[in-house]
Design a protein around this nucleic acid. Sequence first.
DNA 1: GTAATTATTCCATTCATTGGAATATATCGA
DNA 2: TCGATATATTCCAATGAATGGAATAATTAC
Lengths: 417, 417
Amino acid sequence: MLTGTNLVYTKKYNLRIVHEVIRVHGPLSRADVARHTQLSVQTVSNLVKELLSLRLVQEGGRRSEGRGAPSTELTINPDGAHAIGLDLDRDHLTGVLVDLAGQVRQRMHMEVETPSPAEVVDLMCGMVETMATRQGLGVGDLAGLGVGVPGPMRRDEQGTGYLVNPKAFPGWHDIPLAGRLRERLDTPVYLENNALAAAVGERWYGAGRQVGTFFYIYVGSGLGGGLIMNGQPYEGFTGNAGEIGYLPTVLSGDASTPATEDAPHVGLHFNMPRLYERLRRGGTEVGTLEELDQLFAKSHPGMLAWMDDAADHLTALVLAIEYVLDPEAICFGGRLSDRILAGLMDRVAQLLPTRRPHGKVSVPRHLVATAGVDAGALGVATLPIYEIFAPAPRLLLKDRRGGAHGGSGLRRSARSL
Amino acid sequence: MLTGTNLVYTKKYNLRIVHEVIRVHGPLSRADVARHTQLSVQTVSNLVKELLSLRLVQEGGRRSEGRGAPSTELTINPDGAHAIGLDLDRDHLTGVLVDLAGQVRQRMHMEVETPSPAEVVDLMCGMVETMATRQGLGVGDLAGLGVGVPGPMRRDEQGTGYLVNPKAFPGWHDIPLAGRLRERLDTPVYLENNALAAAVGERWYGAGRQVGTFFYIYVGSGLGGGLIMNGQPYEGFTGNAGEIGYLPTVLSGDASTPATEDAPHVGLHFNMPRLYERLRRGGTEVGTLEELDQLFAKSHPGMLAWMDDAADHLTALVLAIEYVLDPEAICFGGRLSDRILAGLMDRVAQLLPTRRPHGKVSVPRHLVATAGVDAGALGVATLPIYEIFAPAPRLLLKDRRGGAHGGSGLRRSARSL
DNA sequence: GTAATTATTCCATTCATTGGAATATATCGA
DNA sequence: TCGATATATTCCAATGAATGGAATAATTAC
């Protein structure tokens, strides 16, 4: 839609920008904020007053640098908002409750074994209520609930939600998980592929805070990816952008790769059950990511062989991302241990120069994700907060089809953002 | 930069939106425009008055549909702006002068043979002045000049321009082509990789007018690509997004592909000089795209073999684009004849289902570019017009680092956009 | 012919940003 | 120590873009 704008949207956007600039660069004085945003000091003063009354930012001590009146330090109020993120995968359900500063205030984890949709909904609602209560909050006080699932997913016909359709869950087919949770909990629910969610988390709280455009490579129980462009998550037309696991292993069709029922694609090389199976055939019995970390620490030959193969394919993917997207950075994260991730990144860094066509002048930086094994849960927890606070230029336009996530978001405050 | 906005930007943006909505969906009445833009009719009335006085839109006849007062039809004034686009490649220099409606009003074409930078600047300035004069315009009346070159390029240190560094021109190295033309002609100059330029042209005048996000695959003297996201061209962090020709031919490193001094990459399979050489070794002497078209029409075996190989690689690239970007559409264009392009698209369409991992529900549409052999020149001609008229949300923000293209743009009118 | 409907414009109002001025509080230099 | 200077912040009035209400005009429906 080609919609116009007016000064109502201007105000909302400026409120968000002031909030964001304090969040990212804070602590800042009002004058600092004015310099960053190129707004006048009067405007900033007014907007800050509003953010203070909403308890989204707070005044700190006064600090004098050089001559002139000392400035009042403004920082984000961590308790300005809380959100819950749930990361669901074949083998686990992890939940975190985070505050506006990105601190994890509550955490829950449970092992599951390909549960049914009804079981999942029950487990999730239980987790949400338990964590909220422990934090002294009602579910209605939350900015919302983010739920991460392994992709791919698809939108429903009206475009008002997502249906889950994960290959990892055999019994699942077109389950409107977000809708069901929304009904039960009466709070906004954001369902997202966990790779993109992790990318949003990184953009909001992590290494991506200062980076406008980056690709996040997520290694969980398989291989996924998420894309942040100009600071905004990019979901793609059908909601499956970044699903690099499905890239064909060979660009020309005539080569030979592991035979499967499916067309040969990179994801097969990162499929954890396949890796466990491979190690088992080699005589090593493992079944969890922690055990893989132990194997790697002991330089287990089968594990190292997998690492080399994985790095080989990752290198090619990195090149594909470099040339298709030319991002500022590529971020590596997921549920692997930090040690394994570092090992993969080292190998990729060594392989890259040998595979890159000559003459490339500048290459994207490689970042390590900061969130560790809870990246997925942290990432999805960011979604509701992001929705309420992120200064997306889209918000300046009248076309507000969004809001399909239902609920009212953050009842007590910040309704005006 | 996290900058704010104010009502000055609001107005500018709304002017552009009204213009754009008439351009894309017109002819429209003021009331229609209000419905599209969700602005009030009074606002639209005021903005239209301004666009009329700038001679950017024009009133047509009155049309009555059903009861009620008949509406006045508003259309874009084709003579509201003119721009020139120059497409430079190893073997030719093509220029077009287009109007605001996208009609080619003047065209010039000349064969060149890897000319020196100084020669190119002279030729270009001559072309610009000749075409402007023939159209009854001064160079200063133009919205600007777009120049397309084969990638890759790079920005200079201050980020205020681009340096050309094309592999196709042996003698060229870090030539600030845009700067030199700007000095000589005193008009805004937009230098761009011709693939992205063609994508912008398609977005503005062609099949991409109604499509928000698409990838443009450009086959010229090599293989390139351009990316339009949410209606905006995406250049990438270093300005080389979409350079799919540099993707490695094999994702794993151990396969065998045509041996070269460079790492094996897809572009080698689309390199026209290499194709000519290959055909020559097969006993067929050709050296132009027209001759290739003739060969294809006669079902020349060597040409068909190349088509099959090219389609094989294109298929893989299409898959990579599908999964990394998940665009709404993929557009095929460039300087190949329509017939060859259609042949490639047919082959790709046949191969795709066999290579795509199962379970993908919806796939991007494939579009044929509408611009034909002049796609490059038409595309770059769009750049100055696009810069002046496109409603980019970015324009709503105070951060206006852009404008590195110099000059004043459209002296007589539209300075307020 | 009259009522209903739609397009467009005139006029007054609203409201966010902003420029100018005022105030407060610090450092710098003598 | 004291005045000069610099900086942060707020108060007040002005600016200007969008908008709601009302008026006008032109057409169709009945």
